[in-house]
Structure formats: C-alpha cells, structure tokens
Write a protein that binds this DNA or RNA. Structure first.
Lengths: 235, 235
DNA sequence: TTAAGACAATTGTATAATAAAAAATGCCGC
DNA sequence: GCGGCATTTTTTATTATACAATTGTCTTAA
C-alpha cells in the first residue's frame, strides 16, 4: 500500500476499512484475517494490526484468537465518534439515517441554543451572525450557502459552552450535507433565513426559552420534510 | 506488565493510560515516549504502540515523529466515547462536569421520551416499568435504587428506537452514579418516584408532548440541585 | 545573520519468531 | 456408535529487532 496525500499507511488503511465496514462491504462475507488483510492491502502486519485496533476502539470490530476479527453489530458502534459519523455519510443515502440524525439534532440544538442565550459572549455571537449573513449573501450558490448554514449551527454549539455539545459538530456537519440531497429534490425549498434569524435575535437578547423554541421550529420543519418526502414514492 | 483479570496486555494498558490521561496525570509533564512507556510498564513496543493508537482513535493523544506523543486538549477528546465517559467518572468529582453531563441529559432524554411515546412496544414499556418498580421497591437500599433508576432511564433511550440515543447510555450511567455524590449531601433528597411515574404514564398513553415535559421536569430539578449545591460553600 | 547541511531523536514500517487461546479433529475406551 | 479427552490447527497476542521517514536542533560557512 502506498502512502497517499500525506497520510500514514496506518491512517490510510483505517480510513479505507472504516468506510468499507460502515458501507456494509463485509456484511455477508466476514472480515478478513490479519494475514489476508496484509495480502489484500500489501501492508505489513504492524500496519494492519494498528488499523484494526483503532477500529476496535471505535466499536466497529472485535478480535479474538482463533475466532478471527469480526464486524460488530451496529448497536456496538460508537456512532457519535466523528470518524464513524463521517463514514456514515459515504454510504448510499438512507432516509432512515437522515431522520435519526435529525432527531439527535432536535434534541441537542434547541438546548444548545438556550444555553448559548445564557452564556454567549461577543465573539460567539459574531460567529453566529457571520453564519447567518453568509446564508443570506450566498443564497444562490449552493456550496457557500451550505457552508454558512453549517457555520451557523456549529457556532451555536460552541457558544453553548458545553464541550459535549461541541462533540456533535461532525454529526451536524454530516446531517446538513445529507440534507441537500433531500431538500434539493423538493422544489423551491431553501433553508429559511427568517427562522435562523429568530434564533440569533433570541440569543442576543439572552432569551433562552425563545432561542430554544426558534431552533426547535427549524428542526421540526426538517423532520416534517423527511416524513413528507419518501424516496420510495418519488417525491 | 502482567495480564490482569482476563484482559489482554494491550487493553490493560489502554485502561491504565486512559484513566491517567483523563485524570490529568500528564498535564504538566508531557506524555512519555514509546521507549519510556515500554520501560515504565514493562511492555513490548507493540503493546505500547497499540494502546497509544487506540487512545489516538479516541482523540486523547496525537503522535508525530521526532515530536513525540502528546495529550490533546480536552476539546479534541471524543467525550461521548463510552470509555472516555467512564474514565471521566474516575477522576475527582467536579461540579462542572456533572452540570455538563446533566445538560446533555436535558437535551437528549426528553426527546428520547417523546420518541418512546410514539414507538415503544410492549417489551420496551415493561423494561421502563421494571425500572420504576425497582426504584419503588428498593427505595431504602441505595445501590439497588440507583441501579433501578439507571435501568429506567436507559430503557427509555432504547425505547426511542434511535440508535444514536442508545449510545449515550454510558454517559447517563456515569451521570447518575455521580449524582449520588451530590444528592446524598442534600438532606432527605431521593429520586422522585411520582415524577418518574408521570413519564411512564405519558409513554404508555402515547403522549409524546407529555413525556417530553415530564422528563424535562426531572432533569431541570437535577440541574437546579447542582446550582444550589456549591461544593466550595459546603451545602 | 542567515542558510545549507549534518546530526539526532522519535515515531512509522517491516519481518520473524514464539506464546496463548479456542475451535476442530481424531482417538480411545466402552 | 458415542461420550469424553488429548491433539492438532488456526488465528490473534506478544516479543524482539532492524531499518525508514520525519522533523527539530546544531554546526558551519558564506
């Protein structure tokens, strides 16, 4: 295995295997043994073992002598691990996972907004406002509008002052990127600027309850969109 | 290093190092080099490296040639990793971390209860009721009452049907175990049975909004308790 | 003073050999 | 035939060693 774009062999293999596992590549067939891994990826045993150990640390694999290395059931995966979350995005779009992401966001973000209303300092508020302005200014260019949308939501997580909320930034990043796949198919729908502005205003006023409900409204709408749109039917 | 109680050397070292890092043992001094680790723990380089790699996968460490291995800032830790969460409990009690845990619970559990009200099947409800009954029947014995309390809350996470919520069981487990350290110091306080019962009843009725608010009430009370009780003052 | 190059420290990678675990197999006595 | 026990075999776990790659530091010369 050749080292690619600055990543070490071990981390390259970690990435490759992580994506393969999450996308179900080994579901029927069982995971390769160490020897097979070394051969398939032309890697040394050290590299293969360390990649497997890292995947084990994330709950994706387990290994025992004689029994081999197995893919763990999804219920054991560390779904909130940023790497795992990211790998989840690389697999074929699933309405279910998108709904589950949004349910997590529905739980976290309103409370984060409420905490932000209580604790945000000037710098926090500037970051949130920058996100909102970006959404407004680049409404036409999808990529930049999405980036600004993400910036807005992540800035609120940070402003909450709770490091655990901050951990979920990768999930929200992923969820919002998935969401374009959904909302683009629904004619004329774009992220609502006024709804986002309401959140900012409430945070600026220190209105925790207002921020909570304004954010909750944004996410409830997303959740409604998902339920309305069933990919099996068409739109 | 001798293998202890059935754990492999690598996992033993992972546990030891994880606890040490989280408890701040290397904060001033910097993390040992591979060579030093091998010597200090009488471990082979493979064992040391694999333990370090797993800690890297959890965001606690980073390693670069010539620069050595460093403890990452807390903001990079995978705080929602079950192992990390558990290690956090082993360090000296901190009012801050307990508040942060409870804020996460305040976000997650009400929404989980609402989803449970929509999706719970008979088995889910039985598990929740078992928890509640356990709290009632063993109100006097602290250990069993705590276990039942945990069972109640975790059963609701499971009943939500969202695997991401289920990931937070270790955090809730830890938070509730920490909570006895707080509530025991507040005379006469025990987990409120009626408040928990209200959650169960709402879930049984399929009343999502009722379940959400009932659960929210429980957690808001916990949060109030923390604010009231300042360990610096005494009680 | 600065830049080029040599040096050194530390992690990264490779390989070989042995140990331990546990499943599979075969053997034996009955 | 069949149950139980010893043996074999497969696979990961551990140890040891050597070399490569990276990068900070020091030296030296222009």
């Amino acid at each position: 295995m050749r080292t690619q774009h600055g990543v070490s062999l071990t981390y390259g293999l970690l990435e490759t295997l992580g994506q393969s596992i999450v996308s179900g590549h080994y579901d029927g067939s069982g995971f390769p043994t160490e020897a097979e891994l070394c051969q398939q990826f032309s890697a040394s045993r050290t590299v293969a073992r360390e990649a497997v150990k890292m995947l084990t640390a994330k709950g994706l694999l387990s290994a025992r002598p004689r029994q081999g290395t197995k893919v763990e059931p999804v219920s054991r995966w560390n779904l909130l691990d940023p790497d795992v979350t990211r790998w989840l995005m690389e697999r074929p779009f699933s309405n279910t996972i998108y709904r589950e992401f949004t349910e997590v966001r529905l739980a976290i973000e309103p409370v984060a907004a409420a905490l932000a209303a209580q604790h945000a300092d000037r710098k926090d508020i500037k970051a949130i406002r920058d996100g909102l302005n970006g959404m407004r200014d680049h409404a036409a260019e999808h990529d930049q509008a999405l980036a600004a949308d993400i910036e807005f939501h992540v800035a609120i997580l940070r402003a909450s002052g709770n490091p655990f909320f901050w951990q979920l930034r990768e999930l929200i990043n992923t969820a919002l990127r998935l969401s374009i796949g959904v909302t683009n198919k629904i004619s004329g729908h774009t992220a609502s600027i006024p709804a986002h502005e309401a959140v900012l205003i409430a945070i600026e006023k220190g209105d925790a309850d207002g921020a909570l409900h304004a954010m909750r409204a944004i996410l409830l709408e997303s959740l409604e969109l998902i339920k309305t749109y069933d990919p099996a039917v068409g739109e």
